[in-house]
């Protein structure tokens, strides 16, 4: 018994010694748990879905059971079906419109806010303001969106305020309009633009800006030539963080957009929820792949024409 235990101990210590000395083994030990998890529960599902969308995974009966078989003859059936169905092009245009509007809207609001926070507040106030910005995020996203829905109700605050100001005569319902969707989206995605921009602007050396003034630059010129270029990595990061999820957003369109808005995220969601069986799966996968493809193209164009320095944190 004792000899056996000794053997195990010496084996373990020899193993530990090897690991300590072998750099490659250490690397593998550190990386493999995470990489294997990602491979199995992210990359593999993605590939399976891709195969399914090209009709390359088929279900066949072998004896009494069904098995999935890889077919090496891809076809575009599901993509053709997806692109030729009547709502698709409207959906895609609507998604691009929502996502672009949200990105530009959050950017126009975030930059002055980040500028103010970084340059006009002392450290204590900065922390307090960051606390205020984060706090609403403890309220569930769906509840926040629902809370906005009630503001837009004909008897809600927005309508009554507009009436009191004399802008509208009677109560108006904003629910179901594009404006409602866009306002709610800008509201919901603001923080994803604000934080990366703030992170970058906060680190800008203020002496650079003062130097520009000393050298005779106008405030406008300083902004365009000094501050904005320095803030660019944050702006790019924020734009990606807003644009990509905003394009697939479907909860906001469902809750405040009524039946009229039907962006691509809702299309994918409905495909999986409402259409059962392999048809729905394959069509949904095709839609999902088109969405990813559009994002890859948009990101590429953005990197190409705006820049590719990204600072996330």
């Amino acid at each position: 018994m004792a000899a056996g235990a000794d053997g195990v101990v010496s084996l373990l210590s020899r193993l530990a010694d090897r690991i300590r000395r072998d750099r490659r083994l250490k690397t593998i030990l550190f990386l493999s748990p995470g990489l294997i998890t990602l491979a199995v529960f992210f990359f593999l599902p993605f590939v399976v879905s891709l195969l399914l969308s090209f009709d390359m995974l088929v279900r066949e009966r072998v004896g009494n059971t069904f098995v999935w078989i890889l077919s090496l003859q891809p076809n575009l059936e599901y993509y053709i079906k997806f692109f030729t169905s009547p709502g698709t092009s409207v959906s895609i245009m609507q998604s691009l419109y929502y996502a672009s509007f949200t990105t530009i809207g959050t950017l126009l609001i975030s930059f002055p806010m980040a500028y103010y926070m970084a340059f006009k507040l002392d450290r204590r106030r900065k922390n307090f303001v960051l606390f205020l910005i984060f706090l609403p995020f403890w309220v569930n996203f769906i509840i926040r969106v629902y809370a906005i829905r009630f503001l837009f109700h004909p008897d809600g605050i927005v309508s009554t305020t507009l009436m009191a100001l004399g802008i509208t005569d009677g109560p108006i319902s904003i629910i179901g309009t594009d404006a409602a969707v866009l306002i709610t989206m800008v509201y919901s995605y603001l923080i994803f633009m604000l934080l990366p921009i703030y992170g970058v602007v906060e680190k800008i050396n203020k002496e650079l800006i003062e130097a520009a003034y000393t050298l005779g630059a106008t405030p406008f010129k300083t902004l365009v030539k000094v501050t904005l270029p320095l803030a660019k990595p944050g702006i790019i990061a924020g734009s990606l963080l807003v644009f990509i999820p905003a394009m697939g957003e479907f909860i906001i369109p469902i809750i405040v957009g009524g039946g009229k808005s039907y962006p691509i995220g809702r299309l994918i969601f409905d495909q999986f929820i409402k259409v059962s069986g392999i048809q729905g799966w394959a069509l949904g996968s095709a839609a999902a792949m088109v969405y990813v493809g559009l994002i890859v193209i948009a990101t590429y164009l953005y990197f190409r024409f705006v820049g590719r320095e990204v600072t996330l944190i």
Binding site: L44, P45, F46, P245, I268, S285, A288, V292
Partner: peptide, 13 residues
């Protein structure tokens, strides 16, 4: 990758 895509591909898988 957008969350809805991750969600449906994982569910399928």
């Amino acid at each position: 990758i957008p969350e809805i895509v991750e969600a449906v591909t994982l569910a399928l898988f």
